[in-house]
Amino acid sequence: MIAYILKRLVFMVPMLLGITIISFVIIHLPPGEPGALGMEMNPKVTKEVRERVRAMYDLDKPIPVQYYLWLKRFARLDFGRSFSSDRRLVIDKITERLPITVSLNLLALMLELGLGIPIGVYCAKYKGSLLDKGLTAFVFAGFAIPTFWLALLCMLLFGVYFDLLPITGLKSFNYSEFSFFGKIADLARHLVLPVLISAFGGLAGMSRFMKSSLLEVLRQDYITTAYAKGLPEGMILRKHAVRNALLSVITLLGMAVPGLIGGSVIFETIFGIPGMGQLFYMSVMSRDFPVIMGILVIGAFLTLVGNLLADIALAVADPRIRIG
């Protein structure tokens, strides 16, 4: 087992290296350079200034040399400083946004599970009924409606017309003046729309997965046996069927782990939430190479680790993988 994990870990190194090379080349392909973007078409910027700034960012060197310099820093786990004029450490920029995105995504994921699993169970139990059809239509509507459009409509309805919920951001201006419960209520009010809407989009996947695996389980012989024993239906579902069906949902969860750090650009932009998606989008638009690379590498690393964890979990559960 340990040998298997070690083998997988060693294989991760060339994979990660390959990812960084491809990312680095691709982000240098589009025209436009950092720093220069703010200076484009600005009468006050002379040629000398432009050259000086390029040299400062090492942009006057060929791309392989730039990659080598980046890799050298990265080997010491130094992601360098942002090219944007704030010159902050990339790692600071990422760590101040990561908790926001992770906690939002976690909340949404929990809601997806909390709603998706019961929906899946009901649909499987009453397969073909009106309830099943209605719920299916509902979750597919969530899947099909563009999130940004729904978000704007909800903001208009609950924010502007009914004036019930705040539209953007996470906290009120005078958040620090609130009591403990005031703070919780304030945060909750800000979170209602983003969490609900992002969970709505993911309901379809979760509930359909649950439904189909439950239907699979319900066809098994041991369920028939349970019915034959005369167990009440509720107990059959709870004790035998759902538990077994959940195993496959847990695999689905494992695959969702890397998604927790990648915020949605459109979503965060609309709700004005300062998360990873916004950071990534803004750094792409301003060609802030160190930040882009930082996010890509962390994302790639987590994906690889997530895959490894999923494989290990499967190996623990299934001896055929472990041995074979």
């Binding site: 704007l152 903001m155 208009l156 502007v160 932009t269 004005g272």
Partner: peptide
Amino acid sequence: IPDPATQFL
């Protein structure tokens, strides 16, 4: 507020 439509809202 990065989105102009949200800003107007």
